[in-house]
Amino acid sequence: MKRRNFLRAAVIGAGVTAFGNTLTPGAMAAPAQNGPSPYGALRAADANGIRLPAGFTSRVVARSGQQVAGYAWHSAPDGGAVFADGDGWIYVSNSEVNPGGGASALRFDANATITDAYRVLSGTRQNCAGGAMPWGRWLSCEEVDRGFVYETDPWGGAAVQRPAMGRFTHEAAAADPVRQVIYLTEDVPNGCFYRFVPTAWGDLAAGTLQVLVAGSATSGSFTWGTVPDPGGSPTVTRDQVSGAKRFNGGEGLHYANDTAWFTTKGDNRVWQVNLADDTFELAYDDSLVTNGSAPLTGVDNVTGSSSGDLFVAEDGGNMEICIITPDDIVAPFLRVSGQSASEITGPAFTPAGDRLYFSSQRGTTGSSSGGITYEVTGPFRR
């Protein structure tokens, strides 16, 4: 793959963690391979059951059904994002239950003390992933047939349904402020990769839904085809455009510097969409690891750090968050012990890049009512 042109953290717009350029593109290279982590080996599990590199610590910030700042944290925590809030920040997290769903938020002050917790979306279905918008909103996506995207306010204002963004089995979303579009993944075995082109940037009430069109190969060039009926009835959106590229279970999605990375759980791949030249390729494929056992399986949510590392959460696998470095090395960053019936969800960094939030969706119980949301603090590369 093309060596990734990664980004340093910055805060833009209304306070979403975003990124700016640090590295320059390099030569073509193979998909990422097993190698030593820049953070070193994982230590024994701490009191929270988290195995971390030296210098890192974890704490539990919320548990499903238990009170946090006077609010009962939701079940099955899933996709999440961090928004700057003055000297503090807000972590927004989806709830992947049906019915009920929705999303909640934790507010932190400058000392990382939780000062508030509250609902930002209610009455929806199976809210899985989503994406942070540069204008300070969280898109919460329904992972159900003909599901909706909801634009929510991390500060607790009213949420708005956005049907123009298409009705399908939504997973993740990511904003591209350069092209002023939103990318979207679809979590079905023959799903597609979409972009929504708003009529006006920052206003998702109207626009055009398009789908990536390419051949069946794992790399090559692509075009965008307009979906005639974003409502997806009677013909589902993925079947409306001839030649639409199929992806096996689209999951997490991250945009930075003319590139979108997304995962597909059906084949344990991380895809790289190069938007400057309209090409796509594999950033990682567990079947193409040639030097030992594949360290990353069950790919799911994904985020990027200020140093340029991708952090990919596992649904199953070894219950790890693995990193893929700018040098195309993949290695475990952390492992959750004693929770094999769960999955890791919602990884997101604070604006300063020194704290990582994530959840174990079903915790130690294996039930959606047993979710645990964590914070990891330490010397992240910046």
Rank of each mutant, 00 (worst) to 15 (best):
L121V: 05
C192R: 15
L212S: 13
Q180K: 15
T169N: 12
E314L: 10
E171P: 14
F56K: 07
G123S: 14
R3A: 15
W224L: 13
S287L: 00
Q66E: 15
T113A: 10
A9K: 01
P295M: 12
T350G: 11
D354R: 05
A45W: 05
A256G: 09
L212V: 06
I90T: 08
M165L: 09
I50V: 15
N5K: 15
V149Y: 09
V120P: 01
D267G: 03
V270Y: 02
H74L: 13
R146E: 01
S306R: 02
E314V: 12
N48R: 11
T377D: 08
Y118D: 05
L121A: 04
T113D: 14
T297L: 00
Q126L: 07
A117V: 10
Q272Y: 04
A103M: 05
D277A: 10
Y183D: 12
Y357S: 07
I50A: 10
G101N: 08
T226R: 06
I12K: 08
R382V: 11
D239S: 00
G100S: 11
T223E: 04
G243A: 00
P234E: 08
G202W: 00
A27K: 14
S340R: 14
P332H: 15
F222V: 04
L106I: 12
S242C: 03
T113I: 06
F349M: 11
R63F: 04
W135N: 12
I329T: 12
Q272K: 13
D278F: 02
G101L: 07
F222H: 03
A44G: 09
W155A: 12
R107Y: 01
A158R: 07
L275T: 14
G55T: 13
S219H: 05
E96R: 05
Q33W: 12
Q240F: 10
G191Y: 06
A172S: 15
A283E: 07
P31D: 09
S306I: 03
N111T: 05
F247D: 00
D187F: 04
L121R: 06
T350N: 10
S287A: 09
H254P: 04
V312H: 09
L310E: 02
G225A: 05
R362N: 14
A76W: 13
R146F: 06
G378E: 01
A9H: 02
A84K: 00
E171V: 06
P347G: 08
